[in-house]
Design a protein around this nucleic acid. Structure first.
Lengths: 193, 193
DNA sequence: CACGCATCTTTACACTGTCAAGATACAAGC
DNA sequence: GCTTGTATCTTGACAGTGTAAAGATGCGTG
């Protein structure tokens, strides 16, 4: 049961509480003490599971990134071709953060994203959403037998990522207005790719 | 003179101190009290000039945005054509923040950028760098007599902005590695446009 | 000269992250 | 079963933060 604290699943409960606070009160209201209070636990209890506030935040980010990933993976698995998958990934990338602007600010306000653009130079700590984009792009190349130098590939990957990420960023800055239905427009693939 | 505090230029001194802190100790070390201390003034003195910490931060942002703007304006005035101006603006956009990653996090960690994409729907509070991009793009259209519907124009503007902004954002996330010389590559216009 | 007002200081408060010391309770060994 | 140990949680404290109220200071205007 969930009332048997003092042992069990406090670590996960703290992460969930953090996500809840971000969703309900915004990223700027996330604090160690509030997270602890939400779990009915003293303000120093989190230190048994995380050495830092940063370590808690990092765990919450990993959790949110997980949700983000399932959204992107759905785009890939639902797409009939790898070309469509690429475009749909971008669409879901932007749509995810339009639905939860606080997640964007939370995930990318720090500076800890690691990513190796160069094909073949993967790294275990690479940011998972980026890895998926890279894989999908490479599959697109090989499926369609498109010849591309390594440097051209790097540029392509960077452009794909940047356009989706930049669009998401702009969409999350509260006062940016477009005349058309933004989400609808994105789904017609005119903005991405 | 600058020693005659207690009257004079405290407001501007606070802004300059804020910029200095961001440059030397990073955006996360910016605090009202440190800014006040740097000006040899009590910790509550800023409240005579700003109602909030937010209002101070907003003033500092405006100051930094000013530096950013002169960088972009230089690209426009130095370019022989409006087409070249567009590309160079993007290049300077990214280069500026690559030189000062802390400025990027500082400027865009909040959510107060206002921008009206639709041509003809300008607003006095629109983000100046965006306004310049929009103007340059429209000049490019008219100079080259390129026919474009209003919605197509919106999409173009958004794509231009998003690619530059996304590239800057990615470049500012510490662990993103490319095999080529990033700044050099950007200046060859292969990434932007 | 006196008044008023903008500016700055002092003091206080709630909230934050962090740490040290102690309490609690489960698991393992005898 | 009882003791011991260790992971977990509590309590209390401290420095740093933003903010508000109250008082001090000194300039310009009447």
């Amino acid at each position: 049961m969930s009332d048997s604290y003092h042992h069990g699943n406090l670590r996960q409960a703290l992460i969930d509480a953090g996500v809840k606070i971000i969703n309900e009160n915004g990223e700027e209201n996330l604090s160690l003490r509030k997270v602890a209070a939400l779990c009915n636990v003293s303000h120093a209890a989190p230190y048994s599971h995380f050495k830092d506030k940063d370590e808690l935040v990092e765990a919450i980010k990993a959790h949110v990134t997980g949700q983000f990933m399932t959204e992107l993976e759905k785009a890939v698995s639902d797409a009939p071709s790898s070309e469509k998958a690429l475009v749909d990934m971008g669409r879901n990338y932007v749509a995810f953060f339009m639905r939860r602007p606080d997640y964007f600010k939370f995930l990318f306000s720090g500076q800890n994203i690691v990513a190796h653009i160069q094909p073949g130079k993967e790294h275990p700590e690479d940011y998972p959403p980026f890895v998926l984009l890279k894989e999908t792009y490479l599959k697109y190349l090989s499926e369609n037998k498109i010849p591309r130098t390594e440097e051209e590939q790097e540029v392509d990957i960077l452009k794909l990522w940047a356009s989706a990420h930049g669009l998401a960023s702009i969409a999350c800055m509260s006062g940016v207005e477009v005349s058309f239905d933004w989400e609808k427009k994105i789904s017609t693939d005119e903005l991405l790719r």
